[in-house]
Design a protein around this nucleic acid. Structure first.
Lengths: 99, 99
DNA sequence: TGTGCTTGTCAGCGTTCGCTGACATTTGTA
DNA sequence: TACAAATGTCAGCGAACGCTGACAAGCACA
């Protein structure tokens, strides 16, 4: 499922939890968080810690995938306004890691 | 790419940012966060707000997918210890939504 | 060499986090 | 009906958040 916002995330977590037959308390205990936190996250809390979110997803055996959409002129937001072509070219020039 | 922890997330963000030829400042401005925050997240900050993370991913045109692994006896962690079969059965019984 | 850009680091500040503990509500069951 | 379990709500607390602003290190280029 595609996660566009915090509500989607909360729905997936709640749905999966029920699918596995767990209640909030046992999920909280297993992930090392409070039940209160589970409640808020399932509701789509926007300021939840990403680390705890990842922990929950691991407990629920949910794999998170990041799909980088192809760079091109047909993006969802017009990139021509903010892409710096000089830096892009510069990045493509060097074949090895720079970090 | 598979996101297992906050470091993976930070790497994806940094990598994608460079791929698009953006510097930290412009990415921060575009996502409405501070450059300081970008620095910390790219480093794998575990307690970053999930809402801001999602905002960054949208700006970078990265799609987040949640893959629910099949429920079964061959999970990464043995579910027999914590799955309540009664609740699972109960969930499967009712065909419609209960939320 | 000097200039400009990018990145990283530091301290201070107001806000909000996540946890605890208790209680109310809802639901299923004896 | 009564009881238990699951869920939701509230207040209080210490800790960490994310932001601002400034400065230093690194790098590329003229």
């Amino acid at each position: 499922m595609r996660l566009r916002n915090e509500q989607d995330l909360g729905f997936v977590i709640r749905d999966r939890r029920k699918q596995l037959g767990m209640d909030q308390a046992s999920l909280a205990a297993r992930a090392g968080v409070s039940r209160q936190w589970i409640i808020e996250v399932e509701r789509g809390k926007p300021r939840a810690e990403v680390g705890l979110i990842l922990r929950i997803l691991r407990v629920l055996d949910i794999t998170l995938l990041a799909e980088e959409e192809p760079v091109g002129p047909s993006g969802p937001e017009d990139p021509t306004e903010w892409i710096n072509i000089d830096i892009v070219v510069d990045e493509c020039r060097k074949p090895q890691e720079e970090d």
